[in-house]
Simulated assay, not measured.
Amino acid sequence: MTARFLVVLDADSTLIRNEVIELIADEAGRGAEVAAATEAAMRGEIDFASSLRSRVAALQGVPVASFERVLSRIEPTPGVRELTAAVHERGGLVGVVSGGFHEILDTLAPTLGVDMWRANRLAVEDGILTGEVDGDIVDAQAKADHLAAWAAENGIPVHRTIAIGDGANDLKMIAAAGLGLAFNAKPAVRAAAMMSVGPVDLSQVIPLLP
């Protein structure tokens, strides 16, 4: 059966309250340094791909075994399970496309009712992060492309898509969707989105579902 509509969310600070790269950086004792760089990237002050590479470089030497501790610190955004349940009840699909990492999303996404997801991968050697991204970086254009591709694969017209995000990396996805929502967002994203959801509660999106 063809899905009726598609909702695509950003992960960090949207699907979840955290910025995963900062949690991993804490494992290397570099959390504050990476947090400042993340904030600048989300405001759109620096190129996302360049910023991500420099922040991932700070993760060099972190053991993959520490991801379990990172996962234990993640806080799902209030209302996320209510939103994904409501999407499914109405015949829709939920996707997540993230500048974060598959290493975390592969475990987390299914527990939150997400149907499909795409993120960056961290290069690993002998169970240790090398400080590099493995493969193409999921940047703003990739987010918009995945929204369009998932809609096409599932026979959903673009005007029946909803994109939800908070940072500059979400702007193209928000512009490409039938309805673009700024969620707990940076000023540039609030200005560009069709609507802004203020409280940090994803169930606020439910009345907007088709």
Rank of each mutant, 00 (worst) to 15 (best):
H159S: 14
A28L: 07
G100W: 02
L71F: 02
A191H: 10
V80F: 00
L83D: 06
I104H: 11
S203G: 08
T77Y: 05
A40V: 14
T2I: 12
S72V: 04
A58G: 11
D26V: 03
F101M: 09
L108N: 05
G167T: 09
Q60C: 03
N18V: 06
W150K: 05
I156N: 08
A177H: 00
A32Q: 14
A25V: 09
R90A: 15
A37K: 14
N169H: 11
F48W: 01
P187K: 09
N154H: 15
Q141Y: 00
T111I: 00
D170F: 06
I137L: 04
D47N: 15
A163K: 00
E132T: 13
V189N: 02
V34N: 04
V138M: 07
P76C: 05
G100L: 07
R160E: 15
V62Y: 03
N184A: 13
T77V: 01
G95R: 01
T161H: 08
E39T: 14
E103G: 04
P210K: 02
H88V: 01
E45P: 10
E75T: 13
S54E: 15
L9T: 04
A86T: 12
P157S: 11
D166Y: 06
T77P: 07
G198H: 12
E68T: 13
A11L: 12
S51K: 08
F48C: 11
A192R: 01
R69K: 06
A109Q: 02
R118Q: 11
V56E: 04
L202W: 07
P76N: 11
A11H: 13
E75H: 13
G178N: 14
M194H: 09
D201G: 03
A144V: 02
W117A: 03
I162H: 09
V133H: 11
G92M: 13
S196E: 14
P157W: 08
L9A: 07
M173H: 08
